[in-house]
Amino acid sequence: MKKVKKYFKIFKINFSNELMYVINYVSTFLFFGVVLIVFSQLWRAIYSENPVIEGFTYEKMIWYFMYAETVMLSRFPFVREIADEIKSGDIAYRLNKPYSYILYYYSKFISSSILKLFLNTLVGITILTIAFKGYPMPLIGLILGFTSAIIGLSIHFVFHFFIALSAMWFEDNTAFLFVYSKILLTIGGLFIPIEMFPETVKIIANALPFKHIIYTPATIYINGAENFLKLFSAQIFTLLILSVVVAFAFEKSKKRFNVNGG
């Protein structure tokens, strides 16, 4: 219990820090609004000739996209911080501390991400409820989608931690971040739900873990309790496997640390 308490403390400290800078979120909300406008106009043009595409109506598509984008915009960035610590050697100070390096960053990441997730959900729902003059999604989807989004963000944390670790081999890992983020936009199901993919791509996307970061929470959000247990357990399973792999990779890569005292 004591062990968990210290990570909860980190969670609490970071959460209150983030609350101090709520003004910083305004530009994210505005960008969110811009993206919703662009996509709603794009999909309206598409749906003007096809009333239903792969089971998605125009309305359902926009709500799906809203929640997918909500999750996407809620990711707290930490890769540069770890990469800088690795390159400068400051990581040595952290490794000496009586906590797990990975869990320290996870507590920081998830506290900020949950706050962002909550605020972005509020903003997204408000914009669309005004635009559509009502809230047509199942209310249970709100709670289940939120829970699933937290697991999705945790899976994302693991991938970003892998990218951060690449700083031990590469001077700059920005390109990896860009490519990973585009994977989320595409086969991760942000721009377009996996149901709409051509058959072969659908098989590949379903086999990869990226779909659990954005697609699964957004699907649970629009469908509510339908298939929740199946999707959620697949998410938990993916998170467990990836967590074991990242912990193992971190232990192995520690051997590459070379810090000169002074």
Partner: peptide, 20 residues
């Protein structure tokens, strides 16, 4: 990396135009 990144964006359009 940037070239791959940009090609990924085209994926969205490729899927969309295959559908509609």
């Amino acid at each position: 990396g940037m070239i791959i990144n940009d090609f990924f964006l085209l994926f969205f359009w490729w899927v969309l135009f295959k559908q509609i």
